[in-house]
Design a protein around this nucleic acid. Structure first.
Length: 262
DNA sequence: CGGAGCCCCTGTAAGC
DNA sequence: TGCTTACAGGGGCTCC
């Protein structure tokens, strides 16, 4: 499931192939990935030149010579610099040099074209790798439970289920802890943990749990360093206590009941 | 505003 | 073995 480190890796691996390229034609086949008039969208993109590409939260934002193309990978989306039309391919771009393929078995991803950054990008909270201690503490003054807050993209942009669980473990915070009651010290520990975990995950090309690969089709390696995510019943790497899994905000939530007290 | 609950989707795995 | 059901989850939505 692509979160900040995976999307960052996709952007880094796709950028060298895309910058300066022109879209000769585009085809879209999913009414979920590309809601609205798909033919119109395809036509609008013909002849457009890709000028910049960046990550914002879990979004891939491409500036074209006219308009902005925004891609969200959802759960199983892949942006590939080579490939062919086939099963689960819902976006196919012919460029003046090569092709760009959007593949997404579950179709939770979205591709949209707009004049500027779309509202859901504008609503995003700060980048977790950029936020400072004071702004972070200020944003924690909320009643929400920590796990739910970390998943909230208007709080911080880019953290999903895996990195929320990993960061809370690293900071010794129980997922059900109330955000507003986190001490200043522990809040700063959490901010640092988020930074370290996301940076480390980026350096390992992200986490490949099911079908995540970067734009070249390469898997990431951070999954082998997960301390809690996907480790229900296995011993905590710090204290040996079996990792527990509960449901918080409709998401599977993994934590160590001894290292993460409420 | 918070949060529960549901929905979109399909591959995989568990249950019968 | 083969069918059915549960589950995985990002994010948008409604409702309280």
């Amino acid at each position: 499931m692509p979160e900040l480190p995976e999307v960052e890796t996709v952007v880094r691996t796709v950028a060298p192939f895309l910058i300066g390229k022109r879209i000769l034609s585009a085809e879209f086949s999913s009414r979920f990935v590309t809601p609205g008039n798909r033919k119109k969208l395809a036509t609008a993109l013909v002849g457009r030149k890709i000028e910049t590409i960046r990550r914002r939260g879990k979004f891939i934002v491409m500036t074209l010579d006219s308009g902005t193309l925004t891609v969200h990978l959802g759960m199983t989306g892949q942006l590939l610099v080579e490939g062919a039309r086939g099963q689960h391919v819902h976006g196919f771009f012919t460029l003046d040099d090569g092709v760009l393929v959007y593949r997404d078995p579950r179709q939770f991803g979205r591709i949209e074209w707009s004049a500027a950054d779309p509202p859901r990008v504008r609503k995003l909270g700060p980048e977790p790798l950029e936020i400072g201690p004071e702004e972070f503490r200020k944003r924690l003054r909320r009643k929400a439970r920590m796990k739910a807050l970390l998943l909230n993209q208007t709080f911080l942009a880019g953290i999903g289920n895996i990195y929320a669980d990993e960061a809370l473990f690293a900071a010794g915070i129980h997922p059900l802890a109330s955000a507003a009651r986190i001490s200043a010290q522990r809040a700063e520990r959490l901010r640092q943990a988020i930074r370290e975990i996301l940076s480390h995950a980026i350096s390992l090309g992200g986490s490949s749990i099911s079908d995540y690969v970067d734009a070249r089709g390469e898997r990431g390696w951070f999954q082998v360093e997960h301390r809690v995510y996907g480790r229900e019943g296995e011993p905590c790497k710090t204290c040996g206590t079996p990792i527990r899994k509960i449901l918080v905000a409709q998401r599977g939530t993994h934590f160590c009941p001894k290292c993460q007290k409420r």
